[in-house]
Amino acid sequence: MSSHLPATVPPAPGGGEDGATGDLVLAPAAPPGTERLVADLREEVSRLIVAELERLADALAPDSDGAGRRRPGGRPVDRVVASLDLADAVRAAVHDAAGDAVRAAVAATCDRLADALEGHAAVADGVAVLSVAVDVTGTHAWETVRRRTARAGAFVEERVRRQLRDLLRGVADGDLAATVRGRAAEIGDDYGRVLSGLEIPQARRDGVAAVAEAADVVAATRWRASDDCPHAWHARMDGTVVDCGDPFVVPAVEGGDQPGAYPRAVFAVGADEPFGCRCAQDLVLAADVPTDVRELRGWDGVDVDCRVTDRQYGVWLDHARDGEDFAALLARIDAEYSRTRAAETFCNGSKKQLYGWLAEYGLK
C-alpha cells in the first residue's frame, strides 16, 4: 500500500445489516522489519534443510571398515530417506516468524485505527490522544495462523522426502552422498523462498483480520485488490465488504490457473492462495462510533487520554476552529473577549474558573 494514503477515506459501500457502514480505515503498509522477517525465515528454513540433508548424506556415504579402508554399500537408501527429520524444527521456525509478523501487523493496525478514530472525532493535538490495543489470541484469524504454521513442518518434511526419493532413484550407491550434497543448497533455498514468501505476508494480513475481529470499533472489512497481485481472480474481490466474523467468498473463474475447488470461503484477504498475493484487508468503522471522544471511553480496546477536563473539552468541541487545540482556542478567547464576557460565555459566569484556565496555560 502506498504510504501517502490517509488513515481514513469516505464511508465504504455495502456491509452491515442495513448496508450502512462507517469510515473506511485503510490497512497499514508493511510494518518496519517485514522484509527482514522474510529474509530471516528464508535463511533459517534453508539452513535447517541443508543441515538435515548433510546428515543424510553422511549416512549414505560408504562405511569405514575400521581400518581406514572404505567399503561400498552404506545404509539402505529407503531407510535413510525415511529418517529425514525436519517437521518440528521447520514448524518452530515458521511459527516464531509468523507470530512476529502477526504481532507487528496488529500493532501497526491498532496505530492506524487510533489515528482514524482521532480523525473521525477531529481531535486536535493537545486535546486528547487515543490508542487502541486488543487481545487477538482468541480470534479466528489467530487460530488460522496457529493451524497453518503447525502444518508447515510436516508439509516440508514430506515434500523433501518425496523429492529425495525421486532424486536418488537409479543413482549408484557410491554416488548417493555426493548427489544429496550437490542439491542440498538448492532444495533448502527453494523451500525457504516459498515458505517465507507465503507465511510472512499472509501472517500480516491475518494480523489485520484479527484486529477487525477483536476491536469493537470495527464493523466490517473490505478486500482491496492489488494491481500487481499475480492471482487474477482476486481482482474480482476488489471492494467486497463483509461484516466482521463473516468470510469472504472467492468465486470460481473461467480459465487462468486458479487451483483447487472454488468458490472458497476465507476469513482473511488472500488466504485462498496467499503465495505472491499483494492484496490488502481494509477495516470499516462501526457506523455508531461517536465523534465525541469522551463517549469512546468504555469501548473495548480503546483508551482515551484526555489532556483537558471534560468542561474544557466541551468548550473546545463547541467553539474551536479547524486544527485549533484548547490552548490556541483559549488564547483567541482571551484576545477577542473581555474576561467578564469570556467567563459568562465559556465558564458559566465563573471568573475563578476562567482565571484558573488562563493560569494553567500561561496566559494570566
Results as ranks from 00 to 15, higher is better:
M1V: 07
S2P: 01
H4E: 05
P6T: 14
V9Y: 12
E17D: 14
E17H: 14
G19Q: 14
G19C: 08
A30S: 11
P31T: 09
P32W: 07
V38F: 06
D40P: 08
D40Y: 07
L41G: 11
R47P: 03
L48T: 10
L48A: 11
I49Y: 12
I49Q: 04
L60T: 13
L60G: 05
P62R: 08
P62Q: 10
D78V: 15
A82F: 08
L84N: 08
D85A: 13
L86G: 02
A92N: 05
D96E: 12
D100V: 13
V102L: 13
R103N: 08
A104N: 01
A105D: 00
T109C: 01
C110V: 11
C110H: 03
A114T: 14
A116R: 07
A116E: 03
G119L: 06
A121C: 06
A124N: 07
A128R: 00
V129E: 12
S131I: 02
S131N: 01
G138L: 06
G138Q: 10
T139P: 01
H140L: 12
A141G: 00
W142Y: 10
R146C: 00
R146D: 05
A150I: 05
G153E: 04
E157D: 12
E157K: 09
V160I: 15
V160E: 04
Q163H: 15
L167E: 09
G170F: 11
V171K: 09
L176V: 14
T179K: 04
G182W: 05
G182K: 00
I187L: 04
D189N: 01
G192C: 03
E199P: 00
I200G: 04
P201D: 09
R205K: 07
D206I: 05
G207M: 03
V208D: 04
D216I: 00
V217T: 15
S226T: 01
C229P: 06
C229S: 15
H231N: 03
H234F: 07
T240K: 07
D243N: 15
C244Q: 09
D246C: 03
P247Y: 14
V253S: 00
V253F: 02
G255Y: 10
Y262I: 06
Y262K: 02
A265F: 02
V269P: 00
G270N: 07
E273Q: 11
C277T: 03
L285E: 06
V289I: 10
V289H: 05
R294C: 06
G301A: 01
V302L: 08
D305N: 06
R311P: 01
Y313Q: 05
G314E: 15
V315E: 03
E324G: 06
E324V: 11
L329R: 01
D334G: 04
R339Y: 11
N348Y: 08
K352T: 14
L358K: 02
Y361E: 02
G362P: 02
L363M: 14
